[in-house]
Each structure stands twice: as C-alpha cells, then as structure tokens.
C-alpha cells in the first residue's frame, strides 16, 4: 500500500505543478502549452501506475471506496481533459479553469481513507466497466465544456483577460463547448441505458427511483433542457456558459454527493 500511495502522491504533485503553471501562464499572459502538457501527462502516467498497483494488490478495480472512486475519477477526468488539451491547442488556457476544479477533487482524495472495501458480487460483470466507463466519459466531456464556459465567463466579467484574450471569440468557444455538451448527452444516455441493463440483472428491476438513478435522470434532463434552450432561443454565449456550469454542478453532485449520503444499495460504492 505504501508504494501505491507514494506513486499517487508523486502523480498529484505533477498534476498540481502542471495546473499551477497553467494558471500562472494565464495570469501572466505566457504560453506554456508543452510544459503543462508534459507535467499533466507525467501525472497521468504515475497515477495509472498507482491505480494498477492497487488493482493488482486487491484484485479488483477502483470502484468501491470513496478513495477509489475519487482516484479513478481524477484519473479519467485528467485523461479526457488531457486529450482535449493535446488535440485542441486553442483552448489550452482553459486549464486555468479546469485545474482548480481538479484540485478540489485531489484535495478530497488526499483526505479520503485509502483502506479497502468489499467487492460486492453484483459487481462481477462487464457492465461494471461499460456503465462506469460511459459515466466517466460523460463527466469528462462536461468538464471540458466547463473549462471553455469558464473562459467565456471570466472574460465576460473581466477576470484574467491576459492569455484568455488570445482565445477564439465567444461564439466560437460557445460552439465548441456545445460539442462537448453533445458528447456529454450521448455518453450520459449510454450511462443510463447500461445502468438500467445492469440494474435489471443485479436487482431485478431496471429503474426504481433510487437516489442515484433519480439524480442522474435529472442531470440528463437538464442536459436536454440546456440543448433545447440553445436551439429555441439562441442565447448569448454567456447564458449558455452559465447553463454548462449548472449541468456540471448537478453532475458533480450526482457523482460525488449522492452516493455517499444515500442509504440505498446503489451507491456507486457498496
């Protein structure tokens, strides 16, 4: 366990360095794309190693305890964000918005108890990976959209305009954020479908309004609402950006709030 935690610490240090550098880059109006990319990638590789060590030791994936769920989500969110960061250089400064959100999750992770949990028999199915995989892509896409929306909002309210000023205009960013919201809707839909299939197998019903099901359904509806709002009223980018913040907050609460306060069997962490 020691080794795995040391590697995790090293990963977090790399993530934090990359994030801090990205924030300074924006604040000071400098370009740091490659260094940040390198640090975040190093963090991701170390993190992967730490997860693999734990997986090997416990013989099950990081899906059970709060510690594991936070860790695997930090990993998947960093992975999705890193892909966007690498493939869409224009939006790189949005790391200054995304990384503080990640710092919150990382801080929480460092406080969580790294002890092991019981792997329930209902988790011995490929649906575990499919369902959780879809959920992770969904949240990742929402995070990238949040980063872009954050740039629009910060620019609008005159905060840290330095490097942000060089980014594409609001309309272009809005369009890009919308693409990630569309991706989020697709993967959220897949998450709900695969979750229902799994629930039918594991608990003999595909839907029962348990807290996590209900919250994720409301999140899905809010996504549909946000997308419709856009095609109906063509709101200004700033309004769309606020909508994205709302979707992210709701998704975040669904992922990291509900499972840990509810008493139902569907905790994401039993």
């Amino acid at each position: 366990m020691e080794r795995e935690l040391q590697v995790l610490w090293a990963a977090i240090v790399a993530y934090v360095l990359g994030g801090v550098l990205a924030i300074f880059g924006v604040a000071l109006g400098r370009r740091q794309g490659r260094v940040v990319l390198g640090l975040l990638l190093a963090g991701l590789l170390l993190h992967t190693a730490s997860l693999a060590l734990r997986w090997q030791r416990l013989d099950h994936g990081p899906f059970i305890t709060l510690f594991e769920i936070l860790s695997s989500n930090v990993w998947s969110l960093m992975l999705v964000f890193l892909i966007a960061y690498w493939r869409i250089p224009k939006i790189r400064p949005s790391a200054a918005v995304v990384m503080p959100v990640m710092f919150v999750l990382m801080g929480w992770l460092m406080l969580a108890h790294p002890g092991e949990g019981h792997f329930p028999p209902t988790y011995r199915t490929p649906w575990l990976f499919i369902h959780i995989g879809m959920a992770k892509v969904f949240l990742g896409a929402t995070l990238v959209a949040l980063g872009i929306a954050g740039v629009v909002l910060l620019r609008r309210y005159g905060i840290a305009e330095g490097r942000f000023a060089a980014l594409p205009d609001d309309r272009r960013l809005d369009e890009l954020a919308y693409r990630f919201m569309a991706l989020a809707l697709i993967f959220d839909t897949l998450m709900l479908i695969t979750g229902a299939i799994w629930a039918q197998d594991a608990w003999g019903r595909y839907w029962a309004w348990d807290p996590l099901e209900t919250w994720s359904f409301v999140t899905w509806l809010l996504l549909a609402f946000a997308i419709h709002l856009r095609v109906t009223y063509r709101p200004l980018p700033v309004r769309n950006a606020w909508m994205i913040v709302a979707v992210f907050v709701l998704a975040f609460l669904t992922f990291f709030g509900v499972p840990f306060v509810s008493e139902s069997p569907h905790k994401g962490a039993v």
């Binding site: 493939r87 250089p89 890009l176 693409r179 569309a182 697709i186 839909t189 479908i193 229902a196």
Partner: peptide
C-alpha cells in the same frame, strides 16, 4: 434505447463533421 443513442450519435456526427473541432 440502442436506436435512440445511435441516432443521437448519428445526428451529432453529421452536424459536427462539417467543421473541425480545432
């Protein structure tokens, strides 16, 4: 449900293909 999600993907793929993400 599978049809719904496939057609959703198809719709957005068609819509976004016209212009590169970057």
């Amino acid at each position: 449900a599978a049809l719904a999600v496939l057609s959703l993907g198809w719709h957005f793929a068609g819509k976004f293909r016209r212009k590169a993400w970057d």
